[in-house]
Design a protein around this nucleic acid. Structure first.
Lengths: 212, 212
DNA sequence: CCCGAATTCTGACACTCCGTCAGATGGGCG
DNA sequence: CGCCCATCTGACGGAGTGTCAGAATTCGGG
């Protein structure tokens, strides 16, 4: 694990680490409140109560600070990824799926602002955000692909189905649906109903067991 | 249908409409090439070969120009939405689903840059982008919800499934997967395989017919 | 064809933000 | 206490933002 450095490359000490951390927190807060297009380096500096020059001591620009926040996501999401590795076939499978979907939804709610930028910049083909997205997605994908493959071996899912594409589609649903939650709730679909449904879709699509 | 106006509210004529159009095209091009966070009003003006002041005559800022581009999407996507309204049950259903998924994927590939900002700003709770997202999504949602409901009435999908959430999950897959295409192709999943798989997932989840 | 009025465009400006220094500050250690 | 080095910042040139007043262009009527 490499040490944290300033923009000029030098390894930084304890006081600087704290400053850097405060800058990251302020960036995250502004991202939540104002959206990705409106966060200015100068706003962050003001929020932290420091000079703009200090911001540039630690980050090349605002995007670079958001990138640093994105780097912290794979680690935070690891326990949830682990839940996707258990065996979801059999009578308890749906319960496991439900728990996994619920936890992943919570995770999204807490980290939505950073996740949105991560996905946006990766979609826009920025190589370093892509790398983080890969690290973030890979454990989900691997686990879900394995489920589909084993359902295919058991003859419960057609061979014409592509395991990777199926896993990708399920991850897509998990990543976009939290963003639609508010709209759903306005139209009478509760959080619980959403989780229940997505869990069943996931469970059915990954294990090949019928939608009931 | 209301007339197009300048930022000061006056209705504009033919020459101005053309200028506005050129500004929009330049904005779309820069959005594709540089990503949402990097488009400057001045870049757009340079690209069009006009003074920055002209840009501000038609749009309050860059986001406003992107919003104008987003406003054109619902109309462009209408023919594809119509494809979701046909009956997908029976032996031809899967073919119809395949065609719909293929066309929607093409649409995404052509309009990805604007769609990404539309979704981002709507996710970030910007009210006017939300309104456009609603207009854009509603026909898809209505059509897909109807399919699920009728499959539920026929007993092929459990009542515990929420029709809206199912439709939302499928739309989520359709909206995010084009962004993963490149990564999939690098790992050996062709565009055709992806469309085939998503079509089957859609077909199965919306009609309740087995995944084979 | 020319003129005046309406429309469209832009130079110029004040302001804010960006990004980089050289040098000031300050906390820990001998 | 005083030195040293990590850390911070004032100050600056450059770029982007957003707004005018007035210049340029178009167009209809005479």
């Amino acid at each position: 694990m490499s040490d944290t450095t300033a923009t000029d490359g030098r390894v930084i000490g304890e006081r600087a680490l704290q400053t850097r951390r405060r800058i990251l927190e302020a960036t995250a807060a502004l991202l939540r409140d104002q959206g990705a297009l409106d966060v200015k380096a100068m706003d962050v500096a003001r929020e932290v109560g420091t000079s703009p020059a200090t911001f540039y001591q630690y980050f090349a620009d605002v995007e670079d600070a958001i990138f640093a926040l994105a780097l912290e996501l794979p680690e935070k999401v690891a326990p949830i990824q682990a839940q996707f590795e258990s065996d979801w076939s059999g009578p308890l499978g749906l319960d496991l799926a439900r728990q996994a979907v619920s936890d992943y939804t919570d995770f999204w709610d807490e980290n939505a602002a950073v996740l949105r930028v991560l996905l946006l910049r990766a979609d826009e083909r920025d190589e370093r955000f892509r790398q983080v997205r890969r690290d973030y997605n890979a454990p989900f994908m691997t686990a879900m692909v394995a489920k589909v493959r084993s359902a295919q071996d058991a003859g419960r899912i057609a061979k014409a189905i592509d395991a990777e594409a199926t896993a990708g589609a399920m991850l897509a649903a998990l990543d976009r649906l939290p963003n639609y939650r508010e709209g759903f709730e306005k139209r009478g679909t509760s959080r619980e109903a959403m989780i229940e449904t997505v869990a069943r879709l996931l469970h059915s699509s990954l294990t090949g067991e019928p939608l009931s």
